[in-house]
Design a protein around this nucleic acid. Structure first.
Length: 990
RNA sequence: GCGAGGGUAGCCAAGCGGUCAACGGCGGCGGACUCAAGAUCCGCUCGUGUAGACGUUCGUGGGUUCGAUCCCCUCCCCUCGCACCA
């Protein structure tokens, strides 16, 4: 019976599909025995790769385990198509973009002829959901995932949208949605928001919020908004810079717009102010929801020499020309803080050096030379002017010196964390920048002397070639920073079984920093915002409670979508009294029963990187919309996958497709490798070499199992070594079960398979199961399974049956097949094993350890002495040594006390040094073992152990084995016998 | 920077206070079987060693302890997340 996984697996897949094996319906088992496991529905913007295979196999293994434990288990799946990725992919494909076509053809093996089918978003989605070889559904079926396929849906389905509509209308009504402005990446050419995916340049650039400090030209009543990322340096400003050759404008800028940065800085300042900014800045300000009316355009040179007043210190400073000013960054008007900015320090030095040249701008050189740096903070390790020290320490020569950036980085960093503001800062004095920057900024914003704007620090370009800027858009937010809502979310986290436990803190931390979440987009697939169909609810917001939808998805066909209104869902989720209608919707009430049966979600198997958004949202929404007993019970967070030690990348074609892997190795091997090579939350590494050897191991398992199955059953007539293997088996059952409860798939499969293989290997040696070596002399003839005594056959069958049940969740095809051949029933249809008390036997385990110890010791001696003994003599320690050991056990592993006690005994006292040495060793022996091990050891008759094992040892070493008592007048040519200690016989080789 | 996780022999990786020179796998070496290869089985794989031992190891430097890979502190390095990509 050869192992041919492809054939075998096809049969089982067909069998499962025909019988609807995994279609789960509420049944007589009560809700307590209902287990509901979910995994994030796939996003079919491309094919399935081996990393996804693990994601879906982990919940499958748990689902299969729970079924064997007697639970009614629901494991459903759906398809997430919301948002822009699919639409974007289709666009790129239609535009004939090389990279996109390459990725489809190379990574996912999409034939050219199929490409046209992918030119509509849902066509594209369908293709990767179920049509392609690399589609998710194909992969999932081949992997043998125990999914209830009747319940699948996509997030673009009309009925699903009704469900999301209910969710958002409810949240809005509860005041958890609000609208406001929000900064987004905006293509000025296409005049629409763009995603990271749409960018040609600057994909990794994030926009920053600049503080604008409103210096004022009091004579003219004009504001010079100076952009800075370090608003706390406002008291250190010595002068301003403009680019004399650039174009500036005077414009009326509306500053009354509410800002949406979450702070209460909606400073109700007056309508418009006259601002001096670069011409580039006007467009940015305009995009950031300000009215900008340009009054006058002129060259920067005209600003040179103007005097403006610092709104915080009320001091006048002068505007100086500088070529380094970038007018495309923020306002194009910058302030100089030479004491704390290495750039400004150098710039000032250089300005002073060429002060005489500045007369051409009508500046007084002496006035420039008189500019003095002003320190605004103190910091340990730096002098009065930290920038000066930084410049000198890094040996910065000029403004073009590359060391300048390094100096700046280091100083900014130190000042941010360790700098303390000087007295003039009043309430902020003495505080570190880190602690007060935000506070200080909003303080001055409230006073109306600071403002803010967004900008990128480098150019960002759209794929269309257009310039991308930061625009403020009207949008809707989920109020995740709402105190009451956060409170509920925190309670949901407390109740949660967070696997691994270390993730719990990440959830609480996320709740702590989460602000409002913009939950709509301008385009993409999905559900329209109910009260404004211009917008679509974005993917992380339409996927927070959809697990509830699984419970009813397969029973909605007869409900017309238009009837799935708010009352329908209110009745479904909140019951009969939830709506005013005296005649509640019967269909909704029926569906409610099923929802009620399955909910809550017992375990959600998801990914580490989703903790800080999706998973936390999932908890928020459940906490708000459902009662506490419906909140999620547990979340398992999974790590990611590597391929041959490197990140997988579908764009580079560096992926392995499940379909191909299954073709090569079989689904059981793929599953087993994925679950056994690391715990779910650890990263795994797909290495073809190791997958291949996994396959070999499974094949060997199969072959041996078939050997056992084909032989007669044997009888329950057990010897010690059989009892040893059975005792090991009970421990394995215990370990595997504990591990399964905690989603430790690696530990579980490792013990059920590899660890137990080790035990079996020993057992096979002990009973001489395999023909091996030339030492199979007539005296100890080699034998196969068939020739074994009935007790061995009985033991092997028992062990196999139990292991097949333990392995069934991991390798369901193989385990079910073998179990059925062995017992007539598939493993999945019989209960999960429990430890059998009569076979639990710690003493026999310790006994066998002694045999292994002796084997190793003898082998060591042979290796060191390079001999080939004909006779091996073992000497069991004398009785008085056992007496000493008993004393140690009695008084505890304390050398002094043991000696004190032992020396009471005259016979022992006479032995003096020998006793002293022995006590030392025995104290160590006792210290190193736990009580139960010691108790087991105490029960052992050592001499019997070695005598029972002597035939085995004789075979191993091809030598005669003689066992003696040390104090039984033994044959002892080299005087070794006296070295014997309890549980460590003396050895003599000859 | 903030939050989280991690650094163990050639590689992957377990261990998280004593039975640890450190499970297991891969790779390598030697042997058995075989015409041969593969598979399978046995042994070795830090150093020294003609008796089961000893010495030096688990990112760095300290500390706690009779005893630390395991606990505490310092530092160095790596990975992930930090919001509009899902």
């Amino acid at each position: 019976m050869r192992y041919t996984p492809q054939e075998l697996e096809a049969e089982w897949r067909e069998r499962w599909a025909e019988s609807g094996q995994y279609e789960a319906d509420p049944d007589r088992r009560g809700g307590d025995d209902a287990t509901f496991v979910t995994v994030p529905y796939p996003y079919p913007s491309g094919g399935m790769h081996i990393g996804h295979a693990r994601t879906y196999t982990v919940p499958d293994v748990y689902a299969r385990y729970r079924r064997q434990q007697g639970d009614n288990v629901l494991f459903p799946i759906g398809w997430h198509v919301t948002g822009t990725p699919i639409v974007g992919a289709v666009e790129r494909l239609k535009n004939g973009e090389e990279e996109q076509i390459h990725s489809l053809e190379n990574a996912f093996g999409v034939p050219e002829s199929d490409l046209t089918a992918l030119e509509t978003p849902m066509g594209y989605a369908r293709y990767f959901i179920e049509e392609a070889d690399c589609s998710y559904k194909t992969g999932m079926r081949r992997l043998g995932l125990s999914i209830d396929w009747r319940r699948e849906f996509t997030t673009n389905d009309e009925r699903y949208s009704k469900f999301i509509t209910w969710q958002y209308e409810t949240l809005k009504e509860r005041g958890l949605l609000e609208n406001g402005l929000h900064p987004v990446n905006y293509c000025t050419n296409e005049e629409q928001p763009v995603t990271t995916h749409d960018l040609l340049e600057g994909e990794d650039t994030e926009f920053q919020e600049y503080t604008l400090i409103k210096f004022e030209d009091k004579d003219e009543g004009v504001v010079y908004p100076m952009a800075t990322l370090r608003p706390e340096t406002v008291r250190g400003v010595t002068n301003a810079y403009v680019d004399p050759n650039a174009t500036y404008v005077r414009a009326t800028v509306d500053v009354s717009e509410q800002r949406s940065d979450g702070s209460d800085s909606a400073a109700a300042s007056s309508g418009g102010e006259e601002w001096i900014v670069s011409v580039e800045a006007t467009e940015k300000l305009d995009l950031q929801a300000r009215n900008v009316d340009v009054e006058e355009t002129f060259e920067g040179i005209e600003l040179v020499g103007e005097r403006v007043t610092n709104p915080v210190t009320d001091e006048e400073i002068i505007v100086v020309p500088a070529g380094f000013v970038d007018t495309d960054n923020a306002t194009g008007v910058v302030m100089s803080v030479p004491a704390h900015s290495p750039d400004d320090w150098i710039a000032l030095e250089e300005a002073k050096a060429r002060a005489n040249d500045l007369t051409e701008y009508g500046l007084d050189p002496d006035e420039i030379r008189a500019i003095e740096p002003r320190a605004i903070l103190t910091i340990e390790g730096y002098g009065e002017f930290p920038a000066k020290d930084a410049v000198e320490d890094h040996g910065v020569e000029s403004s073009s010196d590359p060391a300048l950036e390094e100096a700046t980085q280091e100083l900014y960093n130190s000042e941010f964390h360790r700098g303390e503001l000087i007295e003039e800062y009043g309430e902020f004095a003495g505080e570190s920048i880190e602690d007060v920057r935000d506070e200080l900024e909003s303080h001055f914003q409230r006073q109306g002397v600071f403002d803010a704007m967004y900008d990128f620090s480098e150019a960002v370009v759209c794929r269309c070639g257009g310039d991308v800027e930061v625009a403020e858009q009207e949008t809707w937010f989920l109020r995740y920073n709402d105190a009451e809502w956060s409170e509920k979310a925190l309670r949901a986290i407390e109740n949660l079984d967070a696997i691994p436990e270390t993730t719990r803190e990440q959830y609480t931390h996320t709740v702590d920093w989460l602000e409002e979440w913009p939950c709509i987009r301008n385009y993409g697939l999905g559900t329209r915002l109910p009260w404004d169909d211009e917008f679509v609810i974005e993917p992380l917001s339409d996927s927070t409670i959809y697990m509830a939808y699984y419970t009813i998805a397969h029973r909605l066909e007869d409900v017309p979508p238009e009837e799935m209104d708010r009352d329908f869902f209110e009745t479904l989720f909140y019951g009969e009294g939830a709506v005013a209608d005296p005649d509640p919707d019967e269909r909704a009430l029926e569906l409610r029963e099923e929802w009620d049966y399955w909910y809550p979600v017992d375990y959600r198997c998801s990914a580490n990187d989703l903790i800080s958004n999706h998973l936390t949202f999932f908890l928020y929404h459940h906490a708000e919309l459902f009662d506490e007993e419906r909140w999620p019970r547990g979340i398992t967070s999974m790590g990611m996958g590597l391929l041959e030690g490197e990140k997988m990348s579908s764009s580079k074609g560096h992926v392995v497709l499940p379909d191909e892997a299954i073709e090569t190795y079989g689904a059981d091997t793929v599953r087993f490798f994925l679950l056994n090579s690391s715990e779910p939350w650890q990263d795994f590494d797909w290495r073809a070499g190791e997958v291949g050897s996994t396959r070999d191991q499974l094949e060997r398992f199969w072959n041996r199992a078939v050997d056992v199955i084909e032989e007669p059953e044997g009888e329950r007539d057990l010897e010690t070594i059989d009892r040893w293997l059975l005792a090991r088996l009970q421990r394995t059952v215990r370990t595997v079960t504990d591990a399964m409860e905690r989603f430790e798939t690696r530990t579980a499969s490792q013990h059920a398979f590899y660890r137990f293989e080790e035990h079996l290997k020993w057992y096979r040696r002990r009973v001489n199961l395999d023909q091996q070596g030339t030492d199979a002399s007539p005296e100890y003839p080699a034998r196969g399974v068939s020739a074994q005594r009935p007790g061995v056959r009985w033991t092997l069958r028992t062990v196999l049956e139990t292991r097949l049940r333990l392995l069934a969740p991991f390798v369901p095809f193989m385990a079910n097949e073998l179990h059925e051949r062995l017992t007539g029933k598939p493993a999945e249809d019989v209960p999960w094993p429990e430890p059998v008390p009569e076979f639990e036997n710690p003493t026999v385990v310790e006994r066998e350890r002694l045999v292994k110890d002796v084997l190793e010791d003898v082998r060591d001696i042979i290796a060191v002495t390079d001999t080939d003994p004909e006779t091996i003599r073992l000497y069991v320690a004398a009785d008085w040594k056992r007496t000493v050991l008993d004393t140690v056990l009695d008084v505890g592993p304390n050398r002094g006390r043991v000696m004190g006690d032992v020396m009471q005994d005259e016979a022992l006292r006479e032995k003096g040094d020998a006793v002293n040495a022995l006590v030392g060793d025995l104290v160590a022996l006792v210290r190193e073992r736990d009580d139960s091990t010691l108790a087991s050891l105490s029960e052992i008759d050592e001499r019997a152990v070695y005598e029972d094992a002597s035939a085995f040892l004789a075979r191993e070493f091809d030598a005669d084995i003689d066992v003696y008592d040390e104090d039984g007048d033994p044959v002892d040519p080299d005087g070794k016998a006296s070295q014997a200690q309890p549980f460590r016989p003396a050895i003599h080789l000859e």
